[in-house]
């Protein structure tokens, strides 16, 4: 579903991703783990077109998208839940969800969008109780639910989640990761960038370890959980 080949990307200060290779197959949860500044968020941003790659290829369902703008990548079926959630604070929960389906509503898929909204509200019943509430007044966990729900409203074939556990209480993190696993069971393909390596490796099938913008290790999540370096560096064992 997603193939990243020899991806190099960076900012004005210099390159942050160096010849990165990774892939995500349909139906998988794949996670990117690594320390702060390892390049996880930059990888996610490059995949959705927020960071223009300098070299390399990104293929989404076999189509090259490394030069595409974010709106075209969303239209191609890839949605990102960005780091820090980035909900639209003054807008209501309902309006935020509607914005998630922005391109679909533009195409006139009103009934399908209504059905998907019901799906999202079933997935996160707390959002249903707060439909008219401004998103900025929700708790961190609820905002994360809204950010995931909003991305789901685009009905993506590939869901990218950037640090979904950031700043959340352990119990809420558990809930969020359970929901991600449930979504995967329901057929969603997920690429997850996460600093909380132990939580991510629990639900992922495969994982990549990023260090200084390079893939330092990769393999099945089960294998990486027992890798001594990963255990020592990222799992604190």
């Amino acid at each position: 579903m997603l193939e990243v080949k020899a991806l190099c990307a960076g900012y004005d200060q210099g390159d942050v991703l160096h010849a990165l290779d990774l892939s995500v197959r349909a139906g998988e949860i794949v996670c990117l783990i690594g320390a702060n500044g390892a390049g996880k968020s930059s990888t996610m941003r490059a995949i959705v077109g927020l960071l223009r790659p300098l070299r390399g290829e990104i293929l989404l369902n076999g189509v090259r998208v490394e030069a595409a703008t974010p709106d075209r990548i969303v239209a191609a079926g890839c949605a990102l839940v960005p780091e820090g959630r980035r909900v639209f604070a003054p807008m209501s929960v309902a309006e935020n969800l509607e914005m998630g389906a922005y391109q679909r509503l533009k195409r006139g898929e009103r009934d399908e969008v209504a059905r998907d909204r019901e799906f999202v509200l079933n997935l996160f019943p707390r959002l249903e109780e707060r439909l008219e509430q401004p998103a900025g007044t929700l708790s961190g966990g609820e905002q994360q639910m809204l950010a995931i729900g909003r991305a789901l409203m685009a009905r993506p074939s590939l869901l990218l989640l950037d640090e979904p556990s950031m700043g959340l209480a352990p119990l809420v993190v558990k809930d969020i990761f359970r929901t991600i696993a449930d979504l995967n069971q329901a057929g969603a393909t997920v690429l997850l960038a996460e600093q909380n390596a132990s939580a991510a490796l629990k639900i992922a099938e495969r994982a990549y370890v990023l260090a200084e913008g390079r893939i330092a290790r990769s393999g099945s999540a089960a294998d990486l959980k027992h890798d001594p370096t990963v255990r020592e560096t990222y799992l604190g064992v």
């Binding site: 974010p70 969303v74 949605a79 960005p82 980035r86 914005m99 922005y102 685009a154």
Partner: peptide
């Protein structure tokens, strides 16, 4: 509403496929 989303959060808007 897409315009209002720009004021709130350009990156968030771009992630939803809004041509910012």
């Amino acid at each position: 509403r897409a315009l209002r989303s720009l004021a709130g959060n350009e990156i968030g808007a771009a992630c939803l496929g809004i041509n910012v």
